[in-house]
Amino acid sequence: MKLKSYVVFLLFASLVSSCSTKRPLMPYEMCPGYSELGSQKKLIKSKVKYLKGVNVDIVQLRCLIADNGLMSVDIDFENNYRKKQQTEFLVSWYETNGMASENDPNWRMLILYPDEKRTIKLISPNKLAKDFTIQIK
């Protein structure tokens, strides 16, 4: 009797585990490289390069692949300083083989007021662009 209920329990447990689906990935987990790095902090460290004298921080990256194959990226900038900051950032896109996807990207300008947090929305230049890096100066 005991064995029977144990078998029933095992069957039920295996059924539940096979039926359970993985939770959908959050946008911050969908950025290229996140699955290997495992944390937002490490992701930002791998994607963002701060050039000299930058007083603006990137605090989160979120990514989403649209139906047309283009990648949308949200970049959360934060100014934790008491002065207005004018900064510039350059996003370089790369294909899966590591080749640059965009020929000559533009530096983009950003003005942030003290304690301001702002999200900049970007979109990949084409379907082949699957990864990116950000430089801030």
Partner: peptide
Amino acid sequence: STDLQIISQAMVDSILKSVIAN
């Protein structure tokens, strides 16, 4: 030239997010 780059890039990003890019 910076104004040109800012406004053209902003419009390109917006069009690529629109329904016609799908």
